[in-house]
Amino acid sequence: MRLPEPFGRHIWKKKKRGSAPLIATESTMKARVHVMLKDGVLDPQGEAVRHALGGLGFDGVEKVRQGKVIELDLADGTSEDTVREMCEKLLANTVIESYQIELS
C-alpha cells in the first residue's frame, strides 16, 4: 500500500523561531471571559465534583457546575463588542455554552 505523497513531508517542518516576541506590547486592558455550560446542559464533570464533595463529608452541596475562565490582555481601546465576537467565534461554543465578559 503506497500512501499519498505529502505524508510526513511538510507536516513536521520545524517552525521558524524568534519571529514573534512572546509578549508583543504592554497592555493595560484586560478582559476576563467566564464560559459555562448552559443551564439544562448536563455537566458530568460538575456532577462528579458534587459527588466527591459529598464523599468528603460536605453536606448540602446540591449542584456543581464547572466552567472555565479565560483571561485576555488586550490592546487599549479594544471594544467589548470585539471581545464578544471572540466569544462567539471561538472562546465559547454557544450551542452548549454561555459566556460573560468582564472588562478591567
Partner: peptide
Amino acid sequence: VFPGSNCDRDLAVALQNAGIQVEMVW
C-alpha cells in the same frame, strides 16, 4: 491533517482500499 490528527492515515487507507483517490491536505 491537523497537528494532533492520528487517524488521518487510517482514513486515507480505508478510502484508498475502496478505490478512492486520496490526497492529504495540511
